[in-house]
Write a protein that binds this DNA or RNA. Sequence first.
DNA 1: GTTAGGG
DNA 2: CCCTAAC
Length: 665
Amino acid sequence: MVVKRRLNCGSNGFDFPNMIPKAPRSSRRKVSSKRDDVDSQTSAIDMLASLAGKLLEESESSSTSTYAFGGDDHGHLSGEIKQEHEDVYSKPCKSEFSHQGNPSSKSTSEDTSETCLQISSLEEDCILEQTPVSDCKRGRGMKPLVRCENKKGDCDSLGESGGVSEETSVVNVDAGFEQGEAINGLVADTFSVKDQSQLHVQFPESVHLDGDVKLPPGTNGVPNGSFEGYGNHSKLVCRDDDENYCKYYKFSDKCKSYRHLTRVGNRRVKKSMMTKYGRAVPRSKCFEDTRTDGCLKAFHRKRKLCHGYNPLKHETVHSKRRLSDKGLVFNSDGGLSSESVSNSPEKGESENGVFSAAVGLHSKDSRVKFSIKSLRIPELFIEVPETATVGSLKRTVMEAVTALLGDGIHIGVLVQGKKVRDDNNTLSQTGLSCRENVGNLGFTLEPGPEKLPIPLCSEHPVISMPTDSTNLSERSAAAPVLDTRIAYLLQDADPVTNLGNCVENNQELVPYQSDISADEQPSSDSRALVAVSALEPEALAIVPANPKPKRTDLSQRRTRRPFSVTEVEALVHAVEELGTGRWRDVKLRSFENASHRTYVDLKDKWKTLVHTASISPQQRRGEPVPQELLDRVLAAHRYWSQHHLKQNGKHQAAATMAVKSDPSM
DNA sequence: GTTAGGG
DNA sequence: CCCTAAC
């Protein structure tokens, strides 16, 4: 049988954690009062659960996986998860998965009595498919195999739809990445983009399951990884005993089936509904905020919530792109680390991530022909919230790649490891006229040079090591406050000398926004993004092939970049001296290097500061601004309000005087 | 291009 | 942060 269920989660696709039922419906209602309307719909999760339940019911003694659910007094689930190492693909599913109400299921799986639950996230929709194992083995994008064992019947969905009362929930997720790279806890393996590009999917520590996840001895999984890769499959085990987390987000509307079931080990977690590069939230669908802290409410209030607006404070999708081990790392928490860029496109290094510029160079007559096999996309590090769906992940990657190749990226040329900066030189002048140069030519993808960010300040001189790819995620995870998006700085080293240096500037990058991207990116040359190793003519077309990234709507709005206290202080100070109404001067005076702060921004910020200072502290949100600063804001505001009046009066008076004294006027 | 103010 | 009007 093939149970195909469209969850209509829009671009959200699946929320794996949410696929695991965890609490009795009764208790869940407590968590979410708006679930009633959901119950009427047979959720895909129920389906999943039932299948998994069946499966596990039968193999409960097999102890391949034990997810003991237990409910606490609050209806929370508790339990432990043990990793299952059996390869679901190498092994036939052991359950019959005959789902009630879907007798047909048996027919298809009759021969083997094996059925796997196949979940495909396609395009805008989420599709759950219950298919025979054989189908499960088909190489498709993402094929999570879900097995659920629901102990104590806490997995109501399981029990309900599957008639199973005791089982364990284990979601085996076949990452489905090319070549079966598995998502592995914090770091998913490479994601092949055009064979060579790599995409590392990182799940922030914050979204990892807490210590209740037990890994069997010998497991090399990440302790708190929500995904543990093994072989070609990543297993996702979730445990939910935290109501808060459960309530964190909930798809409303059509996405009700997706509830966040995982628990986060600590509160440093940033939850995100949006991806950096794309949307974790379907454009046409919104999350239902069930929290009371207003954190999300504020977000939700944004009218463009579902239209690509990125609430940075909730962002956990960290998109980074870097040049192999020494490249750039873009991350969503405002950081961009320009790791030492390999300036020597040596051949044969593609395996370990070093981009190679294996560009075929042929010299015929006076013509030089290039054959670029493929353009390599730099490593893309994308940190997504566990609530992100596979579909959104795909889109995120796609958008990231698209953005990379968009007009925000320029092509750089490397000859013998050196960047050719003079575009006016001929190839022969550059040394590209003979066969000896084959292999010495490289191309890089780099941000446009026209917009170079400038160091804002040195308050957060965070420097990460080139290979410290996890540092960013850790740092973000460790961010004490949800919206600790600091205004990072950037060491604007000379592009040339920058090569080989490790530089991080925490400029926020929004690659999918070409304008922003280009704007934010530090020195261009140091940010060579990609190099090539190529050879397929069509690959070359990649660059021009993406003339129109989906940024039409995404680039509409700039990324929100909350002012840091430091910035506020600088603003206040400037206004104190210059007064309001001279925003351009304020900008030039104190934010000249903050390319992302326009004088309009400063003006707006001042406006909000005045407002903030006027309201009670309880009503304030976001990163708290020292009262001292707010006091100064009010003082300055008052002062200049009067002062302006005086000035205006003077000016008017002066003007009047001038008119009167000047007959020509 | 700036500034001011509403959204 | 966006948009627009006004200068």
